[in-house]
Computed example of a mutant assay.
Amino acid sequence: MRHTISILVENKFGVLARVSGLFSGRGFNIDSLNVAPTHDATLSRITAVLKGDDSALDQVTKQLRKLVNVVEVVDFKEGQAVQRELLLAKVKADGKSRSEIMQICDIFRAKIVNVAHDSVIVELTGDEGKTSAFLKLIEGFGVIELARTGALALIR
């Protein structure tokens, strides 16, 4: 089963290694991992999307709460959180395909953030379904490079 976990931690070196090591040591595959400071510079938020069974996840969250630098651990249930992902894609765009790519971007409310002679860089923010649907449509033009942040989540 797929789980999204938010872990508020002290912003100190080595904390991310201990948290991710706890996941891998318990056999969880991390689908995405996102870490950044919060509005309080002394704290960071780790958002992890994991695959694993519920009982093992309960055990891991209990162990996470025992780590010294962990302030809070939240396992988001389905529909309990707002989740978003950022995607940057460099797409081949010649004179013929550029207008079609722009139309797709309008439909998905994506932004073209860079234009070159033979390519465009597109920025898209949305849930995983939206980003996957967008990627399926632009793959036909030729994706040169792709970067995704993974999920960010906050409780409703």
Rank of each mutant, 00 (worst) to 15 (best):
S119Y: 12
A36I: 03
D54N: 12
T125F: 10
D94A: 05
S55Y: 06
V35K: 08
V35C: 10
D127R: 13
V60T: 12
K90I: 01
K90W: 06
N34Q: 06
K66Q: 05
R84V: 12
K51C: 08
N69M: 10
A56P: 03
L124T: 08
D40E: 14
G126W: 12
G142Y: 04
A36Y: 07
S132I: 09
D106E: 14
K90H: 00
V113W: 05
R84E: 11
R98M: 04
G25L: 00
L88V: 04
T131L: 13
S97G: 04
F76W: 09
R84L: 13
V60S: 10
V60W: 04
Q80R: 11
R98A: 00
F76I: 07
A93N: 02
V115E: 10
R26Q: 04
V73W: 01
L137Y: 00
T38R: 08
L57I: 14
K130L: 13
K77S: 14
I112R: 11
R84N: 10
E72M: 14
S44P: 14
C105I: 05
L88D: 08
V120K: 08
L50Q: 01
A110Y: 08
E128I: 12
V35N: 10
C105V: 09
S32Y: 02
G142W: 05
D58G: 15
L137C: 02
V122P: 00
H39I: 13
D58N: 15
F76E: 00
D127L: 10
K77T: 07
M102P: 02
D54M: 09
N69T: 08
A93K: 04
H117Q: 11
V71H: 02
S55K: 12
S97P: 11
K66H: 05
F76T: 00
D118M: 01
G129F: 03
K51V: 09
N29S: 11
T42C: 02
P37Y: 07
S99C: 01
G52C: 03
I107D: 06
E85G: 11
F28N: 01
D40L: 13
D118F: 01
K62Q: 13
S55D: 15
P37N: 09
I107L: 14
S97C: 02
G129R: 12
K62Y: 05
I107V: 15
E123A: 13
I46F: 06
Q59S: 15
S97D: 09
A93M: 00
K96S: 11
R26H: 12
V71R: 12
L33F: 08
S44Y: 04
I121F: 05
N69A: 13
K77I: 00
K77D: 07
N69G: 07
F108W: 09
R84Q: 15
K92N: 10
Q63M: 12
V73P: 04
S55H: 05
